[in-house]
Simulated assay, not measured.
Amino acid sequence: MNPPNDQAIETPLRLDYAKSLAMRVVRRSEGFWFVAADVAAAMKLELAGLLQILGEPAGRLLRLADGEEPALCLSEGELDEALRRVKKPGARRLRRWWEEETRPALLRDNGTNGAAGTAARLHLALALAAEAAQQVSRAVMEDVLRGPGPWQHSRWVVALDYAPNNQQRWPHGRVIGLSSTVSTLGGLAERIAEPDKLPVTTVELIKLAAACHLRLAERMGRMTA
C-alpha cells in the first residue's frame, strides 16, 4: 500500500547535520516531518531497511519546493519509533541532534522570518555552541598539560568569534579562578564603590589605588610637558 500523498507544496528547512549531509525538516501545524531518505542516511541505513524496521505503510508523501517528485517523509512519532528501534551509534547521534539541540531551537522560534530565517538562526546557534565546546576543550587540555594546578576547581572564560561563512577559527578559552570576577573597567569601578558588592581586602584596595594614582600621574605629566 502506498503512503498518502499530500498535494500542498512545502518549503523544508535544510539543516546541517553532518559534513556531507543536510537534514530536510518540514514544519507543519501537526508537527515536524523529516525526509525519510535523510533519516536513513543519518543512521547509515538504506531507505528500504529503515521502512522495513518501521513497518509499512510508513510516512507520507509530501511535495517539497526543492524537488520535482513527492518525497516520503516521516512524522515525529515515526522518527521517535525509528530512533527507539535502531540500535546503532548513528541513531543515538541523530536523537541527540534532534531532541537536545535542534527541536528546542525550532520551538523557540516564532516563525516570523520564515523558513530561511529559522534555518539561519539555527545554523548560527549550532555553530556557536560547537565553537564554545572546542574552546573549552582546548583550554582544559592546555591547563592540565601545564601540570598540577587548580583547574579542577576553576571556571572558564571563552571568546566566541563566529564567522558567517563558517571559516575555522582558533579556539580561545582560559581558566579563571573561583575567586575571579570578569568585568569591564567601568563596571569594576561601580562594583568597588558599592559596599559588599565586590569582596576585596584593604591591601587589594591599596594596590588598586596606588596603581591608578601612578597611571594618572604619568598621564598628567605628559599633558603638562
Rank of each mutant, 00 (worst) to 15 (best):
A133H: 13
R222H: 06
M223T: 15
L94F: 02
L145C: 08
E142K: 06
V136L: 04
R174D: 03
L62D: 02
I9E: 14
L122I: 08
P148A: 14
N110F: 09
I206S: 10
M141K: 12
V144R: 14
V136T: 04
T118A: 15
P4N: 09
T102L: 00
A211H: 11
R84E: 12
K87M: 08
L50G: 02
A129K: 09
A40Q: 03
A105Q: 04
L94I: 00
G173T: 01
V35F: 00
R103N: 04
W170K: 10
G111W: 06
R215L: 09
A225M: 11
A65W: 12
K87A: 07
R85G: 05
G149M: 05
A120S: 12
Q52M: 13
R84T: 14
D6F: 08
V158M: 01
P12C: 09
R138S: 00
S179N: 12
A42Y: 01
T201P: 03
L128V: 15
R28K: 11
G117F: 07
A42S: 15
R108H: 12
G67P: 08
L79H: 06
L51N: 12
N165R: 10
D143Y: 03
K207N: 10
L106R: 03
C73W: 04
Q134E: 15
M223D: 14
G111E: 02
S137C: 01
R14A: 15
G67N: 15
